[in-house]
């Protein structure tokens, strides 16, 4: 038998998904790694092309521009992400919702698109969506997303979706799947805020300070797990005297997540990505966020709304075996969720 080629490690970065995506792959020959990493980048590019809000030819844009009720044929990958979006909106009682695009457009965080063709109100009338009103900018309503066999999707209401909340994580998941199929034993895919580690390796991670650039917090190690962080460090801006950013509570259309960073550990990156949005929308109810940057336990959430939010969020974290940490500007960390086997305490990393 010819001697096996030595196992190597390869690290590459490309500008994709609006950030720098870094792929580290190890545990195979250099030739295998090079091919696998190239394929993984192509997959990320493919997901980006399908789900880009900016690209006029993307599946997402075609869906957004279609008349309400009109079926749109999409790629199976797009179909899956849209399914994820609706599922997460349902499970979270609207704390995550892809239909927040109009808010982000108003705040200048997404480009304006051609005026939405508004269908007759009858489409809405029969659906009993009392929270939804065409007269104001809709922020909530992934429930109006409908699926049919043959990878077809439609919007039963005049919504504009942005999949920024989960698509980046999904692209990371797809890249990991490609690397594994290509024979890569272990690796890391890091797309800025969304990161996934696979194989027999523990990777130390650090999270940026929510407000001070250049300051990092060590969070511990990651093994066979994904992690996503949402914060407004680079997207925060003023709009008509209000602090706004890429995080918005779909139920109210109000900005959320100021002054903190929210990190979630869970099995897949799209879910980690989405759960950070669920938590961002729930901060005030949970008594965890707000302008004071106060931290406290989930139990500190006041009143019925606080209890309901604690129940919904707690149930989601338990159901997905997720763990979260919310870090405020003073560096205080509030840990939520179960201690799962993927989590390696900082003390054990060093």
């Amino acid at each position: 038998m010819p001697p096996r080629p030595p196992l190597a490690e390869l690290r590459r970065a490309r500008p994709l998904l609006g950030t720098l995506v870094e792929i580290t792959a190890a545990g195979a020959s250099s030739a295998v790694l090079a091919r696998a990493v190239t394929r993984a980048f192509s997959t990320i590019e493919q997901v980006q092309g399908l789900l880009s809000f900016h690209d006029p030819a993307s599946d997402l844009t075609r869906l957004n521009q279609a008349a309400p009720g009109q079926w749109v044929q999409v790629h199976p990958l797009s179909w899956t992400v849209l399914r994820h979006a609706r599922a997460l909106a349902r499970v979270s009682d609207g704390r995550f919702d892809a239909a927040i695009a109009p808010r982000l457009q108003v705040w200048g965080l997404l480009p304006r698109t051609a005026a939405k063709r508004v269908a007759s109100n009858s489409l809405l009338a029969g659906r009993g969506r009392s929270r939804f009103s065409v007269s104001r900018v809709p922020a909530c309503g992934s429930a109006a997303l409908e699926f049919s066999a043959g990878s077809r999707v439609r919007l039963a209401a005049p919504l504009t979706l942005d999949l920024g909340g989960i698509a980046k994580g999904y692209a990371v998941d797809q890249a990991v799947a490609v690397l594994r199929r290509a024979g890569v034993m272990r690796g890391v895919v890091n797309a800025g805020g969304d990161l996934r580690v696979f194989g027999d390796v523990a990777v130390p991670v650090q999270v940026r300070h929510p407000e001070k650039t250049g300051v990092f917090f060590a969070l511990g190690g990651l093994r066979d797990c994904a992690l996503a962080t949402s914060a407004l460090t680079y997207s925060a801006r003023r709009w008509r005297g209000q602090d706004v950013g890429a995080l918005v509570d779909p139920r109210t259309g109000q900005p959320c997540g100021h002054g903190v960073s929210i990190t979630v550990w869970v099995r897949s990156a799209w879910l980690a990505d989405g759960l950070t949005k669920v938590l961002a929308s729930s901060l005030i109810e949970l008594g965890l966020g707000g302008e004071t940057g106060a931290t406290g336990s989930l139990a500190a959430g006041k009143g019925a709304a606080g209890r309901e939010a604690a129940a919904v969020v707690g149930e989601m974290l338990a159901r997905y075996e997720a763990r979260a940490v919310i870090i405020d500007a003073a560096g205080r960390a509030t840990w939520l969720g179960a201690v799962t086997h993927e989590f390696i305490a900082q003390a054990d990393v060093a």
């Binding site: 250049g214 990092f216 917090f217 139990a299 205080r332 939520l336």
Partner: peptide, 18 residues
Amino acid sequence: RLAPVFTATTALVASTSG
């Protein structure tokens, strides 16, 4: 309904670095 598991609020150690 599962109660959320809550662990303590801790202070993290910040590091500044390039």
